[in-house]
Design a protein around this nucleic acid. Structure first.
Lengths: 150, 150
DNA sequence: TACAAAAAAGCAACAAAGTTGCAAAAATCT
DNA sequence: AGATTTTTGCAACTTTGTTGCTTTTTTGTA
């Protein structure tokens, strides 16, 4: 009896998952929580590790895909092969993502951060090229790393 | 006897591979050639397909790594999981890459191009963040695709 | 031109990452 | 509370990437 508690849904309507039209499950709650309590971005691997062996690998793949589709998280390009994901801040929704922030990759701690300092790079594309979406990746040293152990 | 010809080394010194201090082998020649006769960027997969089954997968991986190390090609970040590579134009060499061009990813034909129109986005990083390298990824419609089959 | 040393390629075996179909479990709706 | 829908877990598989070692090729030199 006592083990059937609805986790913490004092008010179902204010659940971010519900708001996006998703059913609320353990893995979705957990993964969303991981993103929320995390300053930086997370790769699939990070989530696997942080979540422990609680969820199946496949479930994580599927949850990430669902979150992407619903505009809850966005994918951050990477030059290695570890795409990372982070929460969407703006008006992202099913089908469209709209971000105007920088993705900062720390070369020291290897973490990826979304910096809310919008840039509008002066694009001078050659004739015929039409821009739809811009992603600015900056590699450097993050705040944390630049202050500690100079 | 006739099958021992040095491929085409009229002048060994002007071989781009030699210039970078690399020994000249069949796979390196072929892969470099693929990059040169290609307008866009190539993924490992593309190369595997284009080269036919002539080279071992491992050889291609190692060749790409060598080219990266020597500053012959550079990696282009990707949000999916298909890092692409393209020839370096500028003063890249062992250990350092220096690019100031846009990477354009066509959402229609899925090709990636390096556009030689340099951008210096106005970076306003939060305090403590130090930029070392910037990569501007633009998604949109390329010249080819915007003119054909509107 | 031939020969020894060095470098690269090929092979095999493996590790990691990602995908698919399906049955069992759970969340949702009424 | 029970039926329906959705999601999960599992198993099997494909693709991608890595490592060690032997054979082959390239290179530098006599």
């Amino acid at each position: 009896m006592a083990d059937r508690k609805p986790i913490e849904s004092t008010s179902t309507a204010q659940d971010p998952l519900k708001q996006k039209g998703l059913s609320v499950t353990g893995s979705r709650r957990k993964i969303l929580q991981l993103f929320m309590q995390q300053k930086g971005a997370l790769s699939h691997r990070d989530i696997e590790k942080k979540a422990g062996a609680v969820f199946d690998r496949v479930t994580i793949y599927r949850t990430l895909q669902t979150f992407l589709d619903k505009g809850i998280i966005h994918a951050i390009p990477s030059a290695g092969n570890a795409v990372r994901y982070a929460l969407c801040q703006g008006q992202c929704g099913p089908g469209h993502h709209d971000h105007q922030h920088i993705h900062f990759i720390c070369s020291r701690c290897k973490h990826t951060f979304c910096l809310d300092h919008s840039v509008t790079p002066d694009l001078h594309l050659p004739k015929g090229y039409q821009a739809q979406d811009i992603d600015v990746l900056v590699k450097g040293v993050c705040q944390q790393c630049s202050t500690t152990s100079k």
